[in-house]
């Protein structure tokens, strides 16, 4: 069976998405490593304390909080920012898929993709 031009276009788009994901992961790793080195060089000699669950402080729980942590160069905030980038990569992938379906004029899948995107954004912005 021969591949149609539409399939080739779809395949090329998939490759673009793949590269986007790789870029997102790399960027996340950079932030996590920088934050991690600074965190370890400062707290490395303290005892770890994960046996009792206390939950993270408010600044590490929200996007604005993490963003202001990064701007004030806080160690754990830097790592958390990298983790946020990582969480954002699949969301970005879904967003780009929506654009692709819109370009193809595929309304059914545009709606399906936007529903998924809405659920993802809800989970990130609305704690219940």
């Amino acid at each position: 069976m021969a591949k149609s031009t539409e399939e080739i276009a779809e395949h090329r788009f998939a490759q673009f998405l793949g590269n986007l994901l790789r870029f997102g992961v790399s960027l996340a790793v950079i932030f996590v490593v920088i934050g991690g080195v600074r965190y370890l060089s400062h707290y490395g000699m303290n005892p770890p304390n994960y046996e009792i669950f206390r939950g993270e402080p408010a600044d590490l729980r929200s996007i604005p909080g993490v963003a202001s942590d990064v701007l004030s160069f806080r160690r754990r905030g830097f790592i958390q920012f990298g983790l946020l980038i990582l969480i954002a990569t699949p969301i970005l992938r879904v967003a780009f898929s929506a654009i692709a379906f819109a370009k193809q004029g595929d309304r059914t899948y545009l709606i399906i993709t936007l529903v998924v995107l809405a659920i993802l954004l809800y989970s990130l912005f609305n704690p219940t």
């Binding site: 994960y50 993270e56 729980r61 958390q80 946020l84 969480i87 969301i91 990130l124 609305n126």
Partner: peptide, 22 residues
């Protein structure tokens, strides 16, 4: 994508610790 939905919800509830996740 599935994990991103879960992780988003966990982050806002303070389950994601940077020191351990790193």
């Amino acid at each position: 994508v599935t994990a991103a939905a879960g992780a988003g919800a966990y982050l806002s509830r303070g389950y994601i610790d940077p020191g351990l996740s790193m």
